[in-house]
């Protein structure tokens, strides 16, 4: 997963629901030095009884915001969605020659 262009991650999930798996795996895909390089990560763990769906809110460097309902997705789909936008940004960066 390309995480270079993500500036802000907000995850909310209930670990006791089997639907929270993509949210947790998404967090584990973020590289170890991401926080040190300025990515903001907020993860909220819901109590066990809550029925709230797990959500993921992302912000990219160009200001695009992405809200994903994680409980209907699997982790490859999530990665696909995130990478689609990250690749566009990567292409732009490459063309501008930075």
């Amino acid at each position: 997963m390309i995480t270079r262009f993500i500036t802000d991650v907000r995850v909310k999930f209930n670990p006791f629901s089997p639907r929270s798996k993509p949210a947790r795996i998404f967090l584990s895909l973020i590289p170890p030095s991401a926080r040190a390089e300025g990515m903001k990560i907020e993860s909220k763990i819901l109590p066990r009884a809550s029925k709230e769906p797990s959500t993921l809110a992302l912000k990219f460097k160009d200001g695009k915001e992405m809200n994903l309902e994680l409980d209907k997705m699997r982790i490859p789909e999530v990665m696909e969605q995130v990478n689609r936008h990250s690749r566009i940004l990567a292409r732009k960066e490459e063309l501008s020659g930075n």
């Binding site: 670990p15 006791f16 629901s17 929270s20 798996k21 795996i25 584990s28």
Partner: peptide, 10 residues
């Protein structure tokens, strides 16, 4: 088991 949903990921 109740704990099973927790047992995924690192």
């Amino acid at each position: 088991h109740e704990l099973e949903p927790l047992l995924s990921g690192p």
